[in-house]
């Protein structure tokens, strides 16, 4: 299975959605900040790890 880097970056969107839901339910800005940043960090990590792996279409 070929894993496209841009699709891997979508992994972080889960936490961004979670941040929105958490913010609506709790009104805790600090928690929303942490969850939002976690989403960005996971997107970055997933993007670079997927892009950094050998290209699947050459195997």
């Amino acid at each position: 299975m070929i894993l496209k880097a841009r699709y891997a970056a979508l992994a972080g969107v889960v936490f961004l959605v979670l941040a929105v839901v958490y913010g609506l339910l709790s009104h805790d800005v600090g928690g929303v900040t942490m969850l939002g940043a976690l989403g960005i960090a996971i997107s970055l990590a997933a993007l670079v790890l997927a892009a950094g792996s050998p290209r699947g279409d050459e195997q």
Binding site: T33, M34, A37, A41, L44
Partner: peptide
């Protein structure tokens, strides 16, 4: 560097 920046995102988020 990008992985380091990802960790820095969490540092500043805190």
């Amino acid at each position: 560097m990008i992985l380091f920046i990802a960790s820095e995102v969490m540092f500043f988020a805190g």
